[in-house]
Lab assay of single mutants.
Amino acid sequence: KLCLVCSDEASGCHYGVLTCGSCKVFFKRAVEGQHNYLCAGRNDCIIDKIRRKNCPACRYRKCLQAGMNLEARKTK
């Protein structure tokens, strides 16, 4: 099974979405830290295992598009 954000090996369902541990922690920190990420490109950066750290804005956008939600952990 692959992470729906970066296509690395998924470690489980986190915040409602099948993700790897790295994307799970990234999403939690992004939401709780209330980061205002900005993409230096055109908001279409490739997010994969190798390049997932290059653009936090696009990675966060991809987390949201996949359906990640901090509240999902509280309902399970």
Rank of each mutant, 00 (worst) to 15 (best):
K49A: 14
K28V: 07
H35I: 08
Q34W: 05
R59G: 01
G16M: 03
F26C: 02
S7W: 06
E32L: 07
L38F: 13
R52N: 03
F27V: 03
G21Y: 10
R52Q: 05
R73G: 11
K1V: 04
C13T: 12
N69M: 11
T75E: 14
R59K: 03
Q34K: 10
G41A: 11
R52L: 09
N43W: 08
T19S: 14
T75D: 14
L4N: 12
S22P: 08
L18M: 07
I50R: 13
C45K: 00
R73I: 08
L38H: 14
K74L: 15
N54R: 09
R52C: 15
C55A: 00
R52G: 11
A72G: 11
D44L: 04
G21F: 07
C55K: 00
L4G: 10
K74M: 13
N54E: 10
N69F: 11
Y60L: 12
C45M: 00
V17I: 15
K1G: 06
D44F: 03
L18Q: 07
C39H: 02
E71I: 11
L18V: 12
A57C: 09
C55S: 02
N43M: 09
C6A: 00
Q65H: 15
C20D: 00
H35V: 10
G33W: 05
N69K: 12
I47G: 04
G67P: 00
P56T: 08
H35L: 10
N43F: 11
C45A: 01
E32G: 09
R73W: 07
N36R: 11
C39M: 00
G67H: 03
V5E: 00
K76W: 05
K76R: 14
N54A: 15
D48V: 02
D48H: 03
P56I: 04
G12A: 06
L2V: 11
R29S: 08
L70M: 15
V17G: 05
L38Q: 11
C58L: 01
L64C: 14
L64M: 11
T75L: 15
R42M: 10
R61M: 12
V31L: 10
V5G: 01
C20T: 01
S22C: 04
K76C: 15
G67Q: 03
E71C: 09
Q65A: 11
V31N: 06
C13M: 10
E32F: 04
C55T: 01
K24Y: 13
G12L: 05
E71Q: 09
Q65G: 08
G33M: 09
A30M: 15
A66T: 14
L70N: 11
D8R: 04
S7P: 01
C55I: 01
G21I: 07
D48E: 07
L38N: 14
P56D: 15
F27D: 00
I50E: 10
K53R: 11
K62C: 13
K1S: 08
P56V: 08
I50F: 04
A10F: 03
I47R: 03
R51S: 11
A66F: 09
A40G: 09
V25Y: 06
S11N: 13
C45T: 00
Y60G: 01
I47L: 05
V5A: 01
Y15V: 04
M68N: 02
K24G: 11
C20Y: 01
C3W: 00
G16F: 01
N43T: 05
K76Q: 15
N43S: 09
A10Y: 04
L2G: 11
A66I: 04
I47A: 03
H35P: 12
N69I: 07
N43L: 06
K62W: 03
L70S: 15
F27H: 01
C58A: 00
G21W: 09
M68A: 03
Y37N: 10
F27A: 04
C58H: 02
K1P: 03
G33N: 15
R73M: 13
R59N: 01
H14M: 05
G16C: 03
C45V: 02
G12N: 07
F26H: 03
A72M: 13
G33Y: 14
V31M: 09
F26S: 02
C39I: 00
C13W: 09
Q65T: 07
A66R: 05
R29K: 14
R59D: 02
N36Q: 10
K62G: 06
L2Y: 15
A30H: 04
E32P: 03
L2T: 15
A10E: 04
C63W: 00
F27G: 00
G41L: 11
G33H: 12
P56M: 09
D44W: 03
G21S: 11
H35A: 13
R52V: 08
C6P: 00
V5W: 00
V5L: 02
R73A: 08
C63K: 01
E71G: 12
V17W: 02
I46S: 13
A66K: 14
V17L: 05
K62Q: 08
L18W: 12
G67V: 02
M68V: 03
H35E: 15
S7Q: 14
V5N: 02
K49M: 11
N54H: 13
A72W: 11
R59I: 02
L4V: 09
V25S: 11
A57Y: 04
G67R: 03
R59Y: 07
L70Y: 14
C39P: 02
Y37A: 08
L64S: 07
C39Y: 00
G21E: 15
V25W: 09
C6T: 00
C3M: 01
R42S: 12
